[in-house]
Design a binder for these strands. Structure first.
Lengths: 185, 185
DNA sequence: TCTCGACTACACTGACCTGTGAAGTGTTAC
DNA sequence: GTAACACTTCACAGGTCAGTGTAGTCGAGA
């Protein structure tokens, strides 16, 4: 999906503003103005604000998956591979929290095109944990993968909402212990 | 703080709507209409929408603390006391997720009167974990309390956003194992 | 009887919201 | 040379947003 130059600027600006201020709090006029583009162009490229929101979430999801995938594939030891998402957590965790959790909070309509992206992101991570745990020879993979997901999401919330940066380290250490115990059988 | 009959209805309606649809998505006209009250009354009682939002969060915080406190005090064993917040998690976890995390997503201004309530809620829970862990004779209480907070918040997110209801059980079991290991020494 | 507090009725402001219509400019590709 | 494409300009529709001003009703307590 190749974007026109204007569309790329719109998406960059919208991503920053949606994440920083919230989806409902940012109007299309602001996005168009900050992108140096007219509102007409915005609607010609994206069709509606809802679709722009979905495009924002898809782009962020894609960037994040690339980052996690790269971190996973940089490791060979199955145990370290399962822990890779925790290794990149610190680069990812910003003070406004998880963009997908935040989007979930604002998108109350289950039919919104962005909702599928949000749940897809979490499901992808859970499945990745499950796959790497299986490769590491763990038993009870389903619960273990959920456990890692809980630690991952909990770390982000405790970091951003509760203002506890140490939560990232605590979650990472807990995940490591969990995986090592599971793989040792 | 005794509320007038009108104010009570406004707060009830606002709580439902803010939680279900989101804060920015609900206008004061809707709240007034659904409360069977004029907008004038709403402004006479609460002053502004921001203050109404803060009142909503304070009321929800208060109800939740009462519930958790009751669950903690119903137990005598220090280990079970530390785990009490996980016992009431299932009653609390709804499909729209944690109201405070959702509010954090929408309130980008750190000076918003609701922000203090949100961070206060998380800090209160963390401190409760720390106090009960200390009473249970645990070492390294700070990290353990954070670990429990991570499990707690992660369970809520994994449940609501990721659509994994089993996350509640997984987090509860993990917390139990953690507390029992910590108190055993 | 008088006052006070809770509340109603309702018009109104000014800003902002998403979204559209129509006409026109500049660039590139065939 | 012409057609497709990206984009501009700008006016405008039809709502909704938070918030205010003014005048008045009704019941309870002093």
């Amino acid at each position: 999906m190749t974007l026109t130059p204007g569309a790329r600027r719109i998406l960059e600006v919208a991503s920053d503003l949606f994440y920083e201020r919230g989806i409902h709090a940012v109007g299309v006029d602001t996005i168009a103005a900050e992108s140096g583009v007219t509102k007409r162009t915005l609607y010609d490229r994206f069709g509606s604000k809802d679709e722009l929101v979905a495009a924002y979430l898809r782009a962020r999801d894609e960037r994040w998956r690339e980052r996690v995938t790269a971190a996973v594939e940089a490791e060979t030891d199955p145990r370290r591979r399962a822990l890779a998402p925790f290794a990149v957590l610190e680069d990812w965790a910003a003070d406004r929290g998880c963009a997908f959790v935040n989007a979930f909070a604002e998108l109350d309509d289950p039919g919104h095109p962005g909702r599928a992206v949000v749940t897809g992101e979490k499901e992808w991570l859970r499945a990745l944990f499950a796959a790497e745990l299986t490769a590491a020879g763990a038993d009870d993979v389903a619960d273990l993968a959920l456990h890692l997901l809980v630690l991952h999401e909990g770390a982000l919330v405790a970091h951003a909402v509760a203002g506890q940066p140490a939560a990232l380290r605590v979650a990472r250490d807990a995940a490591r212990g969990l995986v090592e115990r599971a793989a040792a059988r």
